[in-house]
C-alpha cells in the first residue's frame, strides 16, 4: 500500500484575519486567502481536468441506475447467450465488447461489465469518501489535542499513532474483515462489509492526518494571535475551535483529497484479496481478482476495471496536487 505521506507541499498555515499580501498584483485590493487559492487553481489546467473527471465520476456513480437503463443491462442479469459454454469465456472478441455490451460481459455469467463498473464506482467512492471522513474526524481531533495540549496527552497520542503505523495494515485489515460476523448492528449482507471496510480503512488512515495536524497545531499554538486570544480570556475550547481550526482547514482539505485515492486503492486491494464486499455486489477489485484466472486468454476483463481504478485515482491525485499547490502560501 502506498502511504499518503507526501512532504511535497508542507502547506503552511493559511493566515486568517488580515492576510499578508501573497503576491503583489496590479489592483491594490484585499483578496481573501480562499480567493487567491481559487485564482491559482483556475490557472492550473491539469488540476482542473482532474477535478472535472472527479465530478463526472461522482455523477456517474450517483446516476448509475439511470445510465445502466439507458446504455446497459441490469447489473446482476446473466446473459448466457454471450458466453461460450465450453470455455466459460465471452463469445465475442475483446471480452465480448459490442454495441449492446459497451465494455463486454464478465466470464461465466455474461453480466454487463459496463453496468458492473458503474455500480462498482458507487461502492468504491462511497467507501473511500466515508473512510476519509472517519480518518479526518479522528485525525483532526487527536492531532489538535496532541499539538495544542502537549505534555502527556501529546506523548500518549503520538505513541498510539506510532503503534498504528507499525501495524501491517493490509494484512490486519484482511484478517479483521474476514473474521467479522455477517450481520452486525442491524445491517446485513453488503452493508456490513461496507461498514467494516469504511471503519477499518478509516481507522488505519487517521495517523497520517493526525501527524500533519499535530505538527501544524504545535507551531500555531506559539503564534501571537493565539496568545492574544488567550490574554483576552479565551478558554481552550474557543482557542481550538475558533483560532486553530480555521488555520488548519487548508492542510486538512489537501490531505483529505489525497487520502481519498489511497482509500480507493485500499478498498480495491481488499476486494482483490477477497475481503471486500461480497458478490454478487460488484466492485472493481473483485472484478480484477476474477480476471486473474482468465487474463492469460482474455485480458479485456482485466483491463477495464484496472483502467477504472487508474483513472479515478489519477484524477483525485491530480486534483489534490493542484489544490495543495493552490493553497500553499509559499507558492506563487
Amino acid at each position: 500500500m502506498t502511504t499518503p505521506i507526501d512532504t511535497t507541499g508542507s502547506a503552511g498555515p493559511a493566515e486568517t484575519g488580515p492576510a499578508p499580501a501573497a503576491a503583489p498584483v496590479k489592483k491594490i485590493e484585499g483578496r481573501s486567502p480562499g480567493r487567491i487559492a481559487w485564482d491559482r487553481l483556475k490557472r492550473d489546467k491539469v488540476a482542473l481536468a482532474g477535478g472535472v473527471v472527479v465530478m463526472l465520476l461522482i455523477l456517474a456513480a450517483l446516476f448509475a441506475p439511470v445510465l445502466t437503463s439507458l446504455f446497459g443491462h441490469p447489473v446482476d442479469e446473466p446473459h448466457p447467450d454471450q458466453i461460450n459454454p465450453e470455455l466459460g469465456l465471452p463469445k465475442g472478441a475483446f471480452g465480448g465488447i459490442s454495441g449492446d455490451f459497451l465494455l463486454g460481459v464478465d466470464p461465466t455469467f455474461g453480466r454487463d461489465v459496463f453496468s458492473r463498473i458503474l455500480y462498482g464506482a458507487q461502492i468504491s467512492l462511497l467507501v473511500a469518501f466515508l473512510a476519509a471522513g472517519v480518518s479526518v474526524v479522528i485525525g483532526v481531533l487527536m492531532g489538535v489535542a496532541a499539538g495544542y495540549f502537549g505534555g502527556w496527552i501529546d506523548s500518549a497520542i503520538s505513541r498510539v499513532m506510532d503503534v498504528l503505523l507499525a501495524f501491517p495494515q493490509l494484512l490486519f485489515s484482511i484478517a479483521l474483515v474476514s473474521v467479522m460476523p455477517n450481520d452486525l448492528l442491524g445491517l446485513s449482507g453488503s452493508g456490513v462489509r461496507m461498514a467494516i471496510l469504511i471503519l477499518v480503512i478509516g481507522f488505519f488512515g487517521w495517523p497520517y492526518i493526525g501527524r500533519i495536524v499535530r505538527g501544524q497545531a504545535l507551531s500555531l499554538r506559539e503564534r501571537e494571535f493565539v496568545d492574544a486570544a488567550r490574554s483576552l480570556g479565551a478558554g481552550p475550547v474557543h482557542i481550538l475551535l475558533r483560532e486553530l481550526l480555521p488555520n488548519l482547514v487548508a492542510p486538512i482539505l489537501v490531505y483529505t483529497t489525497l487520502i481519498i485515492p489511497t482509500n480507493i486503492l485500499s478498498e480495491a486491494a481488499l476486494s482483490f484479496l477477497g475481503a471486500g464486499v461480497k458478490p454478487p455486489t460488484p466492485s472493481w477489485g473483485q472484478m480484477l481478482s476474477q480476471a486473474t484466472k482468465i487474463y492469460q486468454v482474455d485480458p479485456t476483463y482485466m483491463v477495464v476495471p484496472g483502467l477504472a481504478i487508474f483513472i479515478t485515482v489519477l484524477a483525485f491525485n491530480l486534483f489534490g496536487d493542484g489544490l495543495r499547490d493552490a493553497l500553499d502560501p509559499k507558492g506563487n
Partner: peptide, 11 residues
C-alpha cells in the same frame, strides 16, 4: 502512484 500493483503485474 495511481496504478494498483496487481493491475500492472497482470498487465
Amino acid at each position: 502512484v495511481s496504478l494498483p500493483i496487481y493491475f500492472t503485474g497482470m498487465l
